[in-house]
Amino acid sequence: MIVTTLLRLVLLLAFAPLMLGVIARTKAAFAGRQGAPVLQPYWDLGRLWRKGIVVSRTTTWIFWAGPVVAVTVPVVASLLLPMGALAAPLSFEGDVILFVYLFALARFFTAAAALDTGSSFEGMGAAREVTFACLAEPTLLLGFVVLARLADGLTLNALLGAHLAAAWGSSGASLALIVVCLMVVLLVENARIPFDDPNTHLELTMIHEVMVLDHSGPLLGLIQYGAALKLMVLGAVIMRMVLPVDTGNLWLDAGIFLGGQFVLAVVIGTIESVMARLRLARVPQILVGTTLVAVFAVVLVLR
């Protein structure tokens, strides 16, 4: 139990930035570039950690609270979630709702921190962030409804248990739809193309990146590290649905989990390479459409 918990924490905390590196590398490969080293995100974090913090005169303690919450929440949320076959140490009936709402808590504080600077651009980013999240959150819950119907419990351990392998046979269509929908949620929540571009340099079109314009040094480092953790945690949900394998061997399970995460990173990199950024006005439409597809998946699995 303790070994598993520690192993899970190490996997999450140590390997999360690596996913960003893999994504960047995949995109570089598509673009025909050599690309930055896979470990570049680690160097970036180290560099930020050594820098000083620039504090605007309009800001208050909320400005500092945003990054702190943003980095804590994914770690706590990961304790509720089975990572691959490594069961969650903190598991109780209804933890799935806590999982969803923890990310909402992080969103509240990051958006508030953005508004704390008084910059109109950051306000714009915060507004977009909460708007899109409103439309993405029901999809996430509908996905969990499908899983709840297939499982016999309301813990994430039960929802994402080994029974999923058999469930693909009986209700594969619903699961496939939900995987696609959750993929959309993952891309939105982690500010990925086609919904947002983590590398854009035009403030007017940015969503997530424009919220953190004023954060610098360790604060920015915390935010970026938190984003990497969030990508891994949300990715673990999808990969567990796609790869419900339990070998029984701790180290083998950990290996499968990591492999799955890197496959996911490559998939994200591919999506980012082959798709164009959506117009902002189209994003809500796509998200509503995704929600409706998820509703359809629920109806399919309920009958």
Binding site: G52, I53, V54, V55, S56, R57, T117, S119, F121
Partner: peptide
């Protein structure tokens, strides 16, 4: 441990 590099500067207005 956080080192403040600058305080009291205006918000970055792009």
């Amino acid at each position: 441990r956080g080192r403040i590099a600058a305080r009291g500067v205006p918000t970055w207005g792009c």
